[in-house]
């Protein structure tokens, strides 16, 4: 197979890993204020993700690094295009990252509440921004012949992209709720997560449908059979995930919501292929897997590296999740390390 295609697929895999794993981290963070007002409950809720959030975030960092190594022009154009959006995202991620570490280090209501609000901000903002980015990329951006973005920050916002942002947020919130039903031990918290999950899931379905309709109107995704199959599969999986959560089939619900996220990501990339960034000025200006890629030499080196290390990473990350299996109890949350 062509190296460019292999790397395109690898990028898709990394983004699927990222959205699947950070999806529930963002979801848990965003749901935090609505799950319980009690400090001890919130400690338990956060304890479901504190051992793993950093490892999950590395999927994003790796996706960024892999994009840099394999498609440097995409990395250059994308990151400079989304300059202020990424700045907001970095700010959110900085605050979220330190908040996980700082929150538990002191008692006191205002201290805890402050860092909790940072976790909420740091979860909600990236979730929305990724949705905005994905819809913007599908629709196309004013990129000129030298691969430079010619618009400003507000050109990134449209009805479609804002809807995309909200869809991502609510899908992740649902994903987080489904995750929590599997990880919390106290029945009242599980019930609360399930109830919230049904609410945000309902909103997410509505947003998803609207978003699909605008995708049909504004992009060429529906001209690509593979993308259509994937996105419809995602929609079906997501609706089923909601139905299962309502019937308290939590495990099935979580698996289906993960599947929906994976299929949406796959549909997004299938809708772009072989492009990675679409130019709205002239189709010839679009960045593709050939005109934006690294040299065959670099790609082949990186392919060897990826084939060795991605499986190794998967093995020890799965082992880490296995190590921390079992529902989080009050005692787990109180145990100091």
């Amino acid at each position: 197979m062509d190296l460019h295609v292999i790397w395109f697929v690898l990028i898709v895999v990394l983004f699927i890993g990222f959205f699947f794993l950070e999806g529930f981290d963002y979801g848990v963070g965003g749901l935090l204020p609505f799950l319980s007002q009690e400090d001890r409950d919130r400690s338990q809720i956060l304890r479901t993700i504190t051992p793993v959030w950093d490892g999950n975030e590395v999927w994003m960092i790796t996706a960024g690094g892999a994009l840099f190594a394999s498609f440097p022009h995409v990395y250059a154009t994308m990151f400079s295009t989304f300059y202020l959006a990424l700045f907001l995202m970095l700010l959110a991620l900085i605050l979220r990252g330190v908040a996980f570490e700082f929150r538990g280090r002191r008692e006191g209501r205002s201290w805890r509440r402050f860092w909790e609000s940072c976790i909420v901000f740091g979860s909600v903002v990236p979730a929305i921004l990724w949705g905005v980015a994905v819809t913007d990329l599908l629709r196309g951006l004013p990129i000129d012949a030298s691969m430079v973005y010619t618009g400003g920050f507000f050109d990134l916002l449209s009805l479609y992209s804002v809807l995309g942002g909200l869809t991502f947020l609510f899908v992740f919130l649902f994903h987080g709720a489904a995750f929590l039903t599997l990880r919390l031990s106290e029945p009242r918290l599980v019930a609360r997560a399930r109830k919230l999950g049904r609410t945000v899931g309902g909103i997410a379905i509505l947003l998803f449908v609207l978003c699909l309709w605008l995708t049909y109107v504004q992009t060429d995704l529906f001209t690509r059979p593979l993308a259509v199959i994937a996105i419809l599969g995602a929609a079906v999986a997501f609706v089923l995930a909601n139905l299962l959560l309502a019937r308290a089939k939590d495990c099935g619900s979580f698996i289906l919501s993960a599947l929906a996220i994976a299929l949406t990501t796959a549909a997004f990339f299938a809708g772009l292929f072989p492009r990675l960034m679409v130019s709205s000025l002239d189709p010839a200006y679009s960045l593709t897997i050939t005109n934006a890629s690294s040299s065959p030499y670099t790609l082949s080196i990186m392919t060897v590296v990826a084939c060795i290390f991605v499986p190794i990473v998967l093995i020890y990350q799965i082992w880490a999740y296995h190590l921390f299996r079992g529902r989080i109890t009050q005692k787990d949350a109180e145990d100091e390390y």
Binding site: T62, A66, L67, F68, A69, S294, T298, M302, V305
Partner: peptide
Amino acid sequence: GAPLALEA
């Protein structure tokens, strides 16, 4: 890009 990706 390669060393950065390798680092991750």
